[in-house]
Nucleic acid binder design. Structure first.
Lengths: 185, 185
DNA sequence: TCAGCCATGTAATGGGTTACATGATTGA
DNA sequence: TCAATCATGTAACCCATTACATGGCTGA
């Protein structure tokens, strides 16, 4: 299960950052914010990783950096994607996705070992998962209201729809299992 | 997004292996097979990692090792969980699951950047995801036939049902998106 | 004869996380 | 006055993956 599946020696995180840079120049800080606000559902990175990745992109010619002085605020480095960066990103974008085989869910792992714990603990786990999914669903529905008619968000909305579908599927799955567990002796 | 979320200094992989050992003694090789056949959908590990983890569990008192000679085959190390191991596993099992915030899907990442690629490439991605989900669904349904009436597989079946639900959700999501993409100018 | 299973590991590499560090400004 | 935001990074750690290595047995 490679997290990497690189096209050109770039990690997926590097490519995600290149993708964000392809919309215009950004600082590390901006990128971290952009991730949290946008792609966050689909890809995350720790801030220290963002700062680690950017100089590497510059060193390899995928981006350039420029120091910008600010009033009252510390200087910042602003990064811009290069044609080489655009090309690498585009190539990666269009090449087929490596299938992820192996889901790696600590939650499902616990359910799998359900026979080894007492029933109440298991029920509590499933209830938590259900509540979490319900919370996510509410959150996604709010975002949906904001972006559903904005054509610029079309693809973000497509991924959001997966989030909505998944959250609903979790809720149905959990409800069914909870009903069963409560009926069981 | 910690993959770790440890209870006692044990990684989730170590706990998964402890969990399998709680069903009886196993060699590294057996464990790798058991993962592939059973928990595989929910948790995976490379074989080199299994072999790396086992001596660590022994060193920390969670398991004991015993050398077993075999006819015609190389010797094997057989591992048995200790009471300390049982306790650690059980504690981890019953404690609440750390919520995973951040999905990390390279596929959805590409969809998110759909505006940056040509339509055919995107359609191909979504079709592949759909086909992959259909393949998984067929596979899970076969497993379902084998375990649905076996009470020993009750919890495995519960996790499998998530797999079924998720695969069906992917198919519906993909079909809807494909219809839209094909209609779009 | 050749693939594939039995069985156990080492080595190199890399991606990613948390914690630590610094320091000014602004609004509650 | 205290928390938060702007801004950038270093250091330590560790989990995990791929590739490499060895070698006998079994069945097609």
């Amino acid at each position: 299960m490679p997290v990497t599946e690189r096209a050109t020696g770039l990690s997926t995180t590097e490519l995600a950052i290149l993708g964000l840079l392809s919309y215009g120049e950004r600082s590390g800080y901006d990128l971290k914010k952009a991730v949290e606000a946008g792609v966050g559902y689909v890809w995350t990175a720790a801030k220290s990783q963002v700062y680690a990745v950017l100089p590497r992109l510059v060193a390899d010619g995928y981006a350039t950096a420029r120091r910008v002085a600010q009033e009252r605020l510390p200087d910042k480095q602003v990064y811009r994607i290069t044609p080489k960066g655009e090309r690498a990103f585009r190539e990666w974008l269009e090449e087929p996705v490596e299938e992820r085989s192996g889901v790696r869910s600590p939650f499902l792992l616990k359910v799998f070992f359900g026979a080894k714990m007492n029933k109440e603990a298991l029920i509590a786990h499933v209830e938590r998962r259900r509540d979490e999914a319900a919370r996510e669903l509410a959150e996604y529905r709010e975002i949906e209201q904001q972006i559903r008619d904005d054509p610029r968000s079309y693809f973000g909305y497509a991924t959001l729809r997966w989030g909505l579908a998944e959250a609903r599927a979790w809720i149905r799955w959990a409800d069914e299992l909870l009903r069963e567990l409560r009926e069981r002796p």
